[in-house]
Nucleic acid binder design. Sequence first.
DNA 1: CGGGTGGTTGATAATTCTCAATTGTTGTGG
DNA 2: CCACAACAATTGAGAATTATCAACCACCCG
Lengths: 230, 230
Amino acid sequence: MSTEHTARTSTRVPVGHSASVPGINESVLFAGCPEVIGTPFSYAREEEVYGEGEEAEFVYKVISGAVRTHKVLSDGRRQITGFHLPGDLFGFEQGACNRHTAEALTNTKVLIFKRRQVERAATGSAEVACQLWGMATNDLRHAQDHMLLLGRRSAAERVATFLMEVDERLGGTGTFALPMTRRDIADFLGLTIETVSRTLSQLEEGGALRRVGGRQVILRRARLRRVVED
Amino acid sequence: MSTEHTARTSTRVPVGHSASVPGINESVLFAGCPEVIGTPFSYAREEEVYGEGEEAEFVYKVISGAVRTHKVLSDGRRQITGFHLPGDLFGFEQGACNRHTAEALTNTKVLIFKRRQVERAATGSAEVACQLWGMATNDLRHAQDHMLLLGRRSAAERVATFLMEVDERLGGTGTFALPMTRRDIADFLGLTIETVSRTLSQLEEGGALRRVGGRQVILRRARLRRVVED
DNA sequence: CGGGTGGTTGATAATTCTCAATTGTTGTGG
DNA sequence: CCACAACAATTGAGAATTATCAACCACCCG
């Protein structure tokens, strides 16, 4: 069961508005929508970006690092609903209130956009609104794929699927360092850390991957694919 | 494990366009968008509305009856991603291709809208696009709640949550007939039919509900809530 | 070096699944 | 209206998977 997540009481909140950074460093959220510009902001490892229940004031784009969003039950059981890597947007899911907590996995740089501004841009431009619709639809697709994984796949299938997905999002080289702990993986896959660990060991035994000290993995993708088999 | 769903090869598809039905029978999808009107259509119990992988040509609004959408693995394991009751829209989730199969639980009447038309309405009206965005966001919220259920809740919690949700969507009286089979419930909750059945028996023993012949249930909502406890 | 965190492994327990048998429900035709 | 078939739901016994509890190891960073 999930236990012992760092307790945090307050969310650090950006103030002021730095100038937009033109040129190669693109800080606009939508092409042709210069009024919605992002403010650079940083979070430290394990720092909370926003908390469940708080007013949803901002939306975010990851520049570097990684963020997780999760839900918790009152007894501490936790389900991570997504990992957000550079280029990803998050914080769009909610209405007036955040329905997740978001935390930085590592030191993370983001661009912050005011929700209000994004909404105003959407009501003013069908094109922007359609992009937002498309993004939500995309998130929905991921969520539904993940439902199938959580509801119907075995531990080995979950872990193998997860590794292939992370690989793809990190460049698809087959060699990478997992940016999250076993607890995060477990809480994403609906397993315990022990089961994740054991499953990784079994996959290694079966020649589907090699581990180098905890986080680093080298995937044998053809064999991993055979584990998932679909 | 999920097995033996009725195999269907072809999806029946509506042809032609009946006149819009004005008056109390509202067939427009969006207020102030008269060009997107729905065509009434019916599906028989267990009939396929659309299949995974097919081109996504229509979107649907349930008038009466009920529809389920699901995903399947090659070995037959199935995850139902949603039940759609009167008033609900479905078929919006996909891009060019359906990523689910949709089937009628019972004899079902729907309104069918051409995807193309809906998309055109969205690109032409920020208001429509925002409504679509909102609908997708809403679906996303449900999906994420369901992830928490599938990843972290016990069988008893899942079944109790499910019963309360169905009750609410069916009017909140606490007394209703489940519109779906145990298999459907199981495939929605990530359990087996036997576990669903046993869990219902335990809930009945514990006084959280009463069953009358298979489908009919009378909930003791306060006690059910105590099972979910959150 | 030492302490802390994160990760692995082992033994055992709990939950859920599987397989099998039985009962209940519904719809149909005689 | 009843008997029967077909399907749906329940229940039981035993197996499998995953969780829990506990010990241990490894690495990092001062």
